[in-house]
Amino acid sequence: MSAPADGAGRTRVRGWRWVVRTAFLVAALVACGLVIWRTREDFLAAVADVSAFPLVLAFLAVLVGGVVPMFAWRVLILDLGSPIPLAAGARIYFVAQLGKFIPGSVWSVLAQVELAREYRVPARRSATVGLLTIVTAAVSAVLVLGLALPFSTEELRRGYWWVVLLLPPLLVLLYPPVIRRWSALLFRLLRRPADDLDVSVRALAASVGWMVVAWVFYGLQLYALVADAAPDDVSAGPQVALQCLGIFALAWVAGLLFVVVPAGAGVREVIIVLGLASVLPSGAALAVALLSRVLLTVTDLLLAGLAVLAYRARRSRDAV
């Protein structure tokens, strides 16, 4: 009599998981839609003033910048012993990323934990990798900012030089023995079973390296828009390109610190406008910031959709 009961229990669990996943996806899509809807008028006005080639170039740069962080996440999950196929990893990562549009900073990580269950990835492992990916992204962003800040405006250097001081404590969080301790503490507080985690320094360095590549492409996206919007008397040379790289990294870190704001909405735009004050008039800088926001949002939706389609296509081929 226990077998049917166990089967019914598993069916109920699968049913609840389907409900949770569907609710997450609906909430994330609604949140993404709201981001686009609220800025639609300003976005359309900004698009009318930008040339086609820089806009396409910016979109391609965002696309590459959006893909690369998945490899930063995957190198960690593979290092901890979960051989998730590339197509499945893309589905887990890109769909979970839609959670960042929901207020709070935990939804993407929770979604990764839930989606990774299909591949028997322990909750502590996937949650720790999700958090580690955020830390490696922050470390790489601060590194990029530190290299680019000297080329930025005096106002930005005076106001945000202290962000570079975040690097030492962030690096401490990436020290493998410290990772084991904060991960164990987190799951002890959640009263969840834990397993031993031993992340290699090589995997952590690779994750940081992948994220540096992502920041470079994100900065190129911003630079493509800035170069097109710059007045004729402003030279948008290599110094402005480095400035854009640092501005975007700083804007991302600022958005991360404001955990109650979905995907750093509003916070990043303020930093971008402030950082571009030496290059663009305030109106043009705001238009660039809004264009960047919508391009990032559309790219997140596109990557999630393509990852799901690729995953289903591969499953269909394997089933034949």
Rank of each mutant, 00 (worst) to 15 (best):
A8D: 13
V308P: 04
D233R: 02
I84N: 04
L290E: 11
A46N: 08
A27D: 05
A203M: 09
P168A: 13
F94C: 00
A116M: 12
Y223L: 03
L290W: 14
L55D: 04
L220Y: 12
I134F: 14
V216L: 14
A227D: 08
L29N: 01
V56P: 09
L295P: 04
A230I: 05
T297I: 03
L291R: 02
Y223I: 01
D6R: 08
G275K: 06
P176Q: 12
G159V: 02
S82P: 02
A206F: 15
A148Y: 13
E269F: 14
F24V: 00
L286T: 11
D198H: 13
Y311F: 15
G159M: 03
V47N: 03
A127G: 09
V113Q: 00
A236F: 13
E269D: 14
R120Q: 15
A265S: 07
A52E: 10
I134Y: 06
W161E: 03
Q243H: 12
G305E: 00
R181P: 04
L80V: 15
L171Q: 02
F43N: 03
A5I: 10
A88Q: 04
V308A: 02
S316P: 03
A28S: 05
T136I: 13
R38C: 06
V234P: 06
A194S: 12
L25M: 00
G275Q: 09
V19D: 08
G65W: 15
A214V: 06
V135Q: 01
L98T: 00
L149R: 01
A45L: 14
L143A: 10
